[in-house]
Design a protein around this nucleic acid. Structure first.
Lengths: 193, 193
DNA sequence: ATCATTTCTTAACTTAAGTGAACGAGCCGG
DNA sequence: CCGGCTCGTTCACTTAAGTTAAGAAATGAT
C-alpha cells in the first residue's frame, strides 16, 4: 500500500529513505467502509484525503435534496474547503465504496512542510496541477450540454458510470435522475439509427 | 502600484526590504490596452498573470462560437493550463478593459521559489486557496439553474455585469445571449409583482 | 426467503433554454 | 456625417430539462 503512495510522490519529488520513514511513521492509512460519512455539513475538520483504493464523494443538501458535486477515485486528492478556510463545512463527504484512504491533518502538513522543503514544493506543484485540471473541467462543463457532458464522462471516466448510483451521477452532471435516464435512452435510440 | 502587490503578498507572508527589492527589480508590471490578446489557442506560453487593475477573460472557440469561461479582475491570479502542462493552449486570454497586469514567467517563479522558500510557501497557500474557492464556484454552478446563477453573480460580483458585454456574460453563465436577455426580463417581471 | 426501502425507468405535462430571424441602438472607421 | 458592424433585445418555434406520479427492479435487513 505504501508503495502506491511512494510511486505517486515520485512523480513530483524523490524521497530519501529517512523521508519515507518519516511518512510511514505518521500512520495515515485508513480502511473505510462503504457508506461511512467522513465529513458532515456544519462540521469543522482538519482532515485531507488521498484515495488509494475505492471512491469517495462530495454532496450538498440543498432544498432538501442531495446534490453530488464530485467523486474522488484512485490517486485523487481532496482537501475540503473548510480545512483551508477554517469555517464550518457546507457539504458532506462520504464513502461510495469500501476504500483505503490516506488521511492527513493540517497540523501534520504544516510540520512536514517545515521539516522537508521538498514536501512543500510537492504540495505547491500538486495544488497548481489540480487547479489547472479543475479549471479545464469547469470550462468543459460550462461549454457543454448535459448530453455532451455525459458522453464526455463516458470517455474519460467510464468506470464512474458503473461504480456510482445513477441519481448521484445525475446531479454530478447538473441534471435530475429522470433526465439522465431519458438522455441515455435518447443516446441508445440514436445509436440504433 | 507596487504597494498594491505588497499589500496582497502581506496577507500570506511578510517580506524584508531585500525581498521587496528582488521582486521590484523583476520589472513585471505591464499596461495592456483593451482588446489585446495575451494568449492564443494553440500557443505555448510561460506567462502567468495577476490583475492589479482592469479585467481579463478566458474564452474558447468551440463550434465556431466564442465561449467565455472566466473573468479575472482586481487581485485575481491566473496561471494558464498550458503553463502547468506545457501543452498548446486550448483557449484565448484577452483584455476586456485597459488593464495593469503583473506578468511572470515560470522561469522567474522557479528562481524565486528556490531563492526564497517563503515565496514557495506563498504559492502553495495561494494555489490551495484558489483551488478550494474554485471548487465552491464549480459546486454552486452545478447545483444551480441559469437564473439562480445570474442572481448569484448579481450578489457576488455586481461589477462584472456592468463591466462586461452581455454575450460574454451569457456563456460565462452557461447559456446563450438570447436566454440571458429573456431571463433578465423574467426577473424584472417577477420583481414588479 | 420475504418484506420494506431505495433506486431506476417510463410517461404525460410544464417550463425554460436553444435556434433562427428581425429590429433598433450604439460604436467605430472612413 | 454617413454607412457598416457589433450588440442587445424580442418573437415564434423547437428541443430538452424539470416535475409529478406510477410502476418495475434491485438492495438490504430480518
Amino acid at each position: 500500500m505504501q508503495d502506491i503512495l511512494f510511486d505517486f510522490i515520485s512523480k513530483y519529488i524523490s524521497l530519501t529513505e529517512d523521508e519515507k520513514d518519516a511518512i510511514t511513521s505518521l500512520n495515515i492509512f485508513h480502511s473505510v467502509k462503504k457508506g461511512t460519512i467522513l465529513l458532515k455539513e456544519g462540521q469543522l475538520s482538519q482532515a485531507s484525503y488521498f484515495v488509494l483504493k475505492g471512491c469517495i464523494r462530495v454532496h450538498y443538501i440543498k432544498d432538501g435534496e442531495e446534490k453530488t458535486t464530485a467523486f474522488y477515485t484512485e490517486m485523487d486528492a481532496l482537501t475540503p474547503h473548510c480545512v483551508i478556510h477554517k469555517t464550518p463545512s457546507d457539504y458532506f463527504i462520504s464513502c461510495v465504496e469500501d476504500s483505503i484512504l490516506l488521511v492527513s491533518s493540517s497540523d501534520m502538513e504544516v510540520e512536514m512542510n517545515s521539516k522537508f522543503p521538498k514536501f512543500e514544493m510537492m504540495c505547491r506543484m500538486l495544488s497548481e496541477e489540480l487547479l489547472a485540471k479543475q479549471q479545464m473541467d469547469f470550462d468543459e462543463f460550462k461549454t457543454s450540454s448535459p448530453e455532451q457532458r455525459y458522453l464526455n464522462l463516458l470517455q474519460r471516466r467510464p468506470d464512474l458510470i458503473r461504480r456510482v448510483p445513477q441519481h448521484q451521477l445525475a446531479s454530478y452532471l447538473g441534471i435530475k435522475p429522470q433526465s439522465l435516464s431519458r438522455l441515455r435512452a435518447r443516446i441508445v435510440e440514436k445509436d440504433k439509427r
